[in-house]
Design a protein around this nucleic acid. Sequence first.
DNA 1: CTAGTCACTTGCATAATGATAGTTACCAGG
DNA 2: CCTGGTAACTATCATTATGCAAGTGACTAG
Lengths: 186, 186
Amino acid sequence: MKHKSFGKMQCPVARSLERVGEWWSMLIIRDALHGLTRFDQFEESLGIAPNMLTRRLGALVKAGVLEKRRYSERPPRNEYVLTERGRDFKPVIVAMQSWGNRHFAPEGASVLLVHAKTGAAADPVMVDRKTGRPLTGPEYVVAPGPAAGEGTRRKLEASAWGRAHVGNLRASQSESRSIRKARVRS
Amino acid sequence: MKHKSFGKMQCPVARSLERVGEWWSMLIIRDALHGLTRFDQFEESLGIAPNMLTRRLGALVKAGVLEKRRYSERPPRNEYVLTERGRDFKPVIVAMQSWGNRHFAPEGASVLLVHAKTGAAADPVMVDRKTGRPLTGPEYVVAPGPAAGEGTRRKLEASAWGRAHVGNLRASQSESRSIRKARVRS
DNA sequence: CTAGTCACTTGCATAATGATAGTTACCAGG
DNA sequence: CCTGGTAACTATCATTATGCAAGTGACTAG
């Protein structure tokens, strides 16, 4: 009963992590995005044990992120290629790459995105497709969507969305009951 | 000797996953971005066992993603707030949310980003800050950065970057030795 | 017919996870 | 003062995932 499942949570982040949140999974997707397809390519690139690789590849195939394709029948040989869903995961990898470069590469970046023609390094930002406005500022907030259940709605009401709608950002967050209680004594 | 470390890999994605790649970690960050700060808030929101939460919070503090702050001395009470580094992680969460909504929410989105004033739902895309061009197309490719070692360089040469520079995208990838070998027989 | 490659599988030791049950430190009510 | 409650943990222990080493099956090259 280990490894509790995130699958039944309503949160899309949890649902995503359910499929790609395990150790190695995202690195396999990263390598697949870099063009690797074969078992031993992954094995060598990652330094992963073959049994682990088998399990992770199987899970990713089941999740619909990779597709297992037989490219040779007589010596049975398979390759693993990204599906539409897998290719769609690229923004996450790019965001993680950018974060890693900013915070965990004191010697400077060793891997980055560049424009194929000009060679100029890219500086990734998340924006809204329509307006082009950056999504990471306070302008955009999380909100319950059309399919949100009661629980999701309540949870989000207590967070940024609720704060923005209630108007008073400080009061509802920093001054919860327990803190006031604790303050009485001090 | 379990759980091999990604820390010494040069890849920024691996370095990131080393800090936030464990089960629960990203969901904790998600909740922190939603405004949660206290132990029992995380506990209730996630349905995580308290010992797990202790370990994950400790790891995230050590990684510099969260900061443990004592807000009351006499009844000892702590809160966990995101550091600059933690807030910087938001694009990854947004990207994952977007991916989850597109692929694992058949009933429709239950959580999404909206513009605080207009209420319009956002459609997240990764672009270059300077040029505004989308980073997920073939225009941008991964390349070794200034701090790349020999191994990193060799690995990337075999991938998208190498293909773009060699010019022939098909020939160098799909026609590796083993495939040609396999074809001889068929 | 020996050596080698590719794609795995099996077995076993170890380490991480999860559920449950304490523990410590305080406050509030009767 | 005794009971009950909250906040933030720690301890114990069963279960499960991970990692290493080694082996297997189906070929192919020499």
